[in-house]
């Protein structure tokens, strides 16, 4: 079961509200799609500049595996406060701990509404459907 303290998107990002800030990351399912179990297959991750304003759904970064480049999309809007620099040097974090150490971006949200995003249970059902 994925963490139920956050919400999920159909593009396999997660968002966690923590007081006045929110964290974004990608799910283990997204990592698995890119790597198929080979954590060394992730080769590059481009994250946004601090201070950038993101709209919900906007591309905030890009991630490259050995064979594909994929966009990263903001689950909610806000201003980028910080990015996780550790990821750029240690992409394996996304494989080993995508929900804690693997956070990508910290933002100050425009608003804290997570309407339209999936709960952990809904996301479980969504990826189970995709797997068939």
């Amino acid at each position: 079961m994925r963490p139920d303290d956050r919400k999920y998107t159909k593009a396999h990002e997660w968002v966690l509200l923590d007081g006045d800030v929110a964290l974004f990351g990608i799910t283990d399912f997204a990592v698995e799609e890119l790597c198929n179990g080979n954590e060394g297959d992730l080769v590059y991750c481009d994250l946004p500049e601090e201070g950038r304003t993101l709209e919900a759904g906007e591309t905030f970064g890009e991630i490259e595996s050995v064979k594909a480049v994929a966009d990263l999309n903001a689950p909610i809007g806000g201003v980028v406060l910080e990015t996780n620099e550790a990821i750029e040097e240690h992409l394996e974090i996304l494989s080993t701990d995508p929900y804690k150490k693997g956070w990508m971006v910290k933002i100050k949200p425009n608003n804290k509404s997570l309407d339209g995003l999936m709960s952990a249970a809904e996301y479980e059902a969504f990826v189970a459907e995709k797997a068939h």
Binding site: A11, T59, K67, V69, D71
Partner: peptide, 9 residues
Amino acid sequence: GSAQRRKGG
């Protein structure tokens, strides 16, 4: 030689 880009579904 082959490569992919995945964007917006």
